[in-house]
């Protein structure tokens, strides 16, 4: 495994020759060995067209490429870090929550409207995620940041899970999501319970939820 959790807020990544890592720019805390950090102009993988895609989609968090041989410590802003290992499946996560990921993973930008049509777009707006999100697929490890620790909620076909859009971090597996509204007359007169919008996730997979309603 390329990432090791040192404590809840720091990870140690091992880089070997011929392997690449991508990390958020400026997230390196310390390193050992011969490691080079190159700012990544295109903001990830896939060349110029992907770069334009990310710029347009506003999913262009500055990334850097980490190469060489040695170990690197990553951490950012005192946020909790969760390592998620992918074995062939796809993780959906906001670009600004990505701390680091292995170069073996394929990175792509997903249009949320493609998942759920118009409601998908509304969902992006309500949850502050925008209309696009980043997907990582393949085999490898991803380090994701969250405010106040993360817990996993399994999603099964019989049990869909509802998540507060502000507390949603990432999900993987074969999961459909849609925005469900529980808007009633109470919300109209300012007597809402503060839970008017929820993300409904159904299918098979896992959703990662943070212990806070604060966005990064």
């Amino acid at each position: 495994m390329a990432f090791r959790e040192l404590n809840s807020k720091m990870i140690e990544a091992t880089v070997a020759p011929g392997q690449r890592l991508f990390s958020q720019r400026g997230a390196m805390l310390a390193y050992r060995g011969e490691v080079s950090f190159t700012p990544n102009l295109t903001g990830g993988q896939g060349g110029v067209m992907s770069m334009i895609g990310r710029r347009v989609a506003n999913e262009d968090t500055p990334l850097m490429t980490v190469e060489g041989s040695g170990t690197v410590l990553f951490g950012h802003g005192g946020h909790h870090v969760q390592v998620i290992n992918l074995s062939g499946d796809t993780l959906y996560v906001e670009a600004d929550r990505l701390l680091a990921f292995e170069g073996t993973l394929r990175q792509a930008t997903v249009f949320l409207g493609a998942q759920g049509g118009v409601m998908g777009m509304v969902r992006g707006q309500v949850s502050g995620q925008g209309l696009f999100t980043t997907s990582l697929s393949g085999h490898g490890a991803v380090a994701v940041m969250a405010h106040g620790g993360v817990f996993e909620v399994p999603i099964t076909a019989q049990r869909p899970v509802h998540v507060d859009p502000q507390a949603y971090v990432a999900h993987h597996g074969d999961v459909r999501n849609r925005l469900s509204t529980a808007l009633g007359w109470r919300d109209m007169v300012g007597r809402g319970s503060g839970e008017a919008f929820q993300l409904e996730l159904s299918g098979n997979g896992t959703v990662y939820v943070q212990a806070s309603e604060e966005k990064l």
Partner: peptide
């Protein structure tokens, strides 16, 4: 506390208590 739900499964209803 109002708005403190982060996730749920099953069926839940939320109602503000004045």
């Amino acid at each position: 506390k109002n708005g403190s739900m982060v996730a749920y499964d099953g069926e839940m209803a939320f109602k503000k208590l004045s």
